[in-house]
Amino acid sequence: MNRRPVASLWIGERLHYLNQLCLKSHLLQGHPTTLYCTDDVKNAPEGVELRPASDIMEIDMKVVKETSPSFLSNVFRYKMIKKTGAIWIDCDAFCHRPFPEDMDYVFGGHGMIGALNCGVVGLPQDCALMDALLDYYDNLPAYPEWWPKRLRKKMDALDPSVPLSIRIYEVERTAFGPQAFTHFAKKTGDFEKAAPREVLYPVPFQLNDVFYDPYGRVEGHFTDATLSVHLYTNGTKPYWRKNPPLPGSYAARMCEEVGIDPAAALEE
């Protein structure tokens, strides 16, 4: 059965085994999966459709170098949804169950503070939240409108010749990601459409080491409503990026279940 298409972005030449695992998990749940790439990625799981990122937007590698690979993906995901209607998935979001066909708004809270995350996002291609996000990115304000005086003063102290987007990033790394998504979802009245944490982010990011602990009860965080499991690779300790997961850990069990060899795609 073909389910709703999902898509992500990869900036770089090589996927880590956790990224292979997460992409393939969507394929196995029946979701056509596209990976937009800036480079020639040779180790994507079989069945993942590889397309140039420029199909959606040009990725300015100078901006990536001054910020992070995830920075421009915050803009990319909404432009991708607008153009294709696919659900955005971060490359570290594991598909636990298929996304329902009738779930028009796919996003949810994460962590322990009640904010929204944008690691998994589905929106109608035409909606107020989409318009607000794209307008923000396409017409960056001097300061994000939700910033307090403290952050505005920090911004004022930066070299004004540095591009505005990079200055915003330097002041607040999440101003293009969860901060913006949370702010505009509240502004458009869509905040209440957020799924409970257990649906898309069942394990709080503060506890992400549990994925590598053979005695960690990861599934204890899940409910019958859980669709996706975010692995938070940005917060993964270097040891787990450079070494295979311990047998019996959630990461190891999922690799075995999905058919991924961690030792073949470790961080170098």
Rank of each mutant, 00 (worst) to 15 (best):
E66F: 10
L50H: 03
S165W: 15
P163H: 11
M130W: 02
M103N: 14
Y232Q: 01
Y136N: 10
R217D: 14
N74E: 07
R3S: 00
P247K: 10
K62G: 14
P202R: 06
A7E: 02
V48E: 02
E198F: 05
P124A: 03
T84V: 06
K82L: 10
A157H: 15
P178A: 15
H96P: 11
R217V: 15
D92S: 05
F176T: 15
G122C: 06
A180E: 07
Q125M: 11
E172L: 11
E172R: 14
G108W: 04
V41W: 03
Y212A: 00
D131T: 15
K83L: 01
Y136Q: 10
S68M: 07
A251K: 01
A142L: 13
L28H: 01
P148N: 10
I81G: 02
T236H: 02
A157S: 13
D104V: 05
P214N: 06
A265D: 06
M1P: 02
L140Y: 04
L207T: 12
T236G: 00
N19S: 15
Y239H: 07
C37Y: 03
Y250W: 10
R217E: 12
P163E: 12
L35V: 11
G216Y: 04
N234L: 05
F181W: 09
S161Y: 12
P214R: 10
N2M: 09
E198V: 04
Y169M: 14
A44F: 01
M254A: 04
C118N: 09
R253E: 09
D92H: 08
K154T: 07
L23T: 05
A132Q: 06
R4S: 08
Q29D: 08
Y17R: 08
V203I: 03
V75H: 08
G216K: 02
A180M: 06
E198D: 10
A225R: 12
T174S: 15
V64S: 09
H183A: 15
T223E: 00
D190V: 12
H221P: 02
P196N: 09
P141T: 14
R51C: 00
G122E: 03
Y143T: 11
D209T: 04
E198K: 00
S68P: 10
L129W: 01
R97Y: 03
T223I: 02
N19L: 05
